[in-house]
């Protein structure tokens, strides 16, 4: 049976994630309403503005249902703003900023600078035989990460792609290139039977 992956579609680069997931051969659904969470095998939280997405999580009534799904083991992949939402601690964030506390790490918003400092580069990713071309847009920085989290790629000594079981997060945007290897890693992790227990 085909796996079904939701893409949180409140604001941001959700359409590009859907294209990447489609290319991985899974069923995708855009999540804007609590009913859209039914029967999901995984959830992607895209890049966008984390303050905007936080606001819309509350107004859409999605916040508590998503928390409940995540607590019962729903795998999650977050990019950029999505990574901020997965972190256990946000440095310099707004007081009302929502985060799901899915990965024991500290993240600093926009730490790689403004848009004029946004960049693209080739990254060596653990397990890939060819570098991954990564696009960083006003990217958040992982400033501290717990030992149990696996670091799959670094840039300038800082982790930029991390994994804890079937939870993935990246500072950069794998959905902005045609290379679907990182999405495929996430999709392949969905069949891993033991979900994270909290």
């Amino acid at each position: 049976m085909s796996r079904r992956v939701g893409v949180l579609a409140l604001q941001g680069a959700f359409a590009s994630h859907r294209d990447a997931l489609d290319a991985c051969g899974v069923d995708t659904i855009l999540v804007r309403h609590p009913d859209d969470l039914l029967g999901l095998d995984g959830l992607v939280i895209p890049g966008g503005e984390s303050t905007t997405i936080s606001n819309l999580l509350v107004s859409s009534g999605l916040l508590d249902p998503i928390r409940a799904e995540i607590d019962s083991g729903l795998p999650v992949f977050g990019t950029c703003a999505g990574m901020i939402l997965m972190a256990s601690k946000i440095v310099d964030g707004r007081d009302d900023q929502i985060h799901f506390d899915l990965l024991p790490m500290s993240v600093r918003r926009n730490a790689y600078g403004r848009q004029v400092d946004s960049f693209e580069t080739d990254l060596d990713v653990a397990g890939f035989d060819v570098p991954f071309h990564a696009v960083f847009i006003r990217a958040p920085m992982i400033v501290e990460v717990d030992d149990q989290v696996e670091v799959l790629a670094t840039y300038g000594e800082r982790p930029v792609l991390v994994r804890l079981n079937n939870r993935f997060a990246s500072s950069f945007h794998p959905e902005l290139t045609d290379d679907i290897r990182i999405h495929r890693l996430f999709v392949e992790s969905l069949s891993v039977p033991e979900h994270v227990t909290r």
Partner: peptide, 24 residues
């Protein structure tokens, strides 16, 4: 880790536009 990175390329510029989608 690769040492070359570039700013201001077209994909980097369009990337921010992509992040603003669905927004006001």
């Amino acid at each position: 880790m690769s040492s070359t990175s570039s700013t201001g390329s077209f994909p980097v510029k369009r990337g921010l536009a992509e992040m603003l989608k669905g927004g006001v």
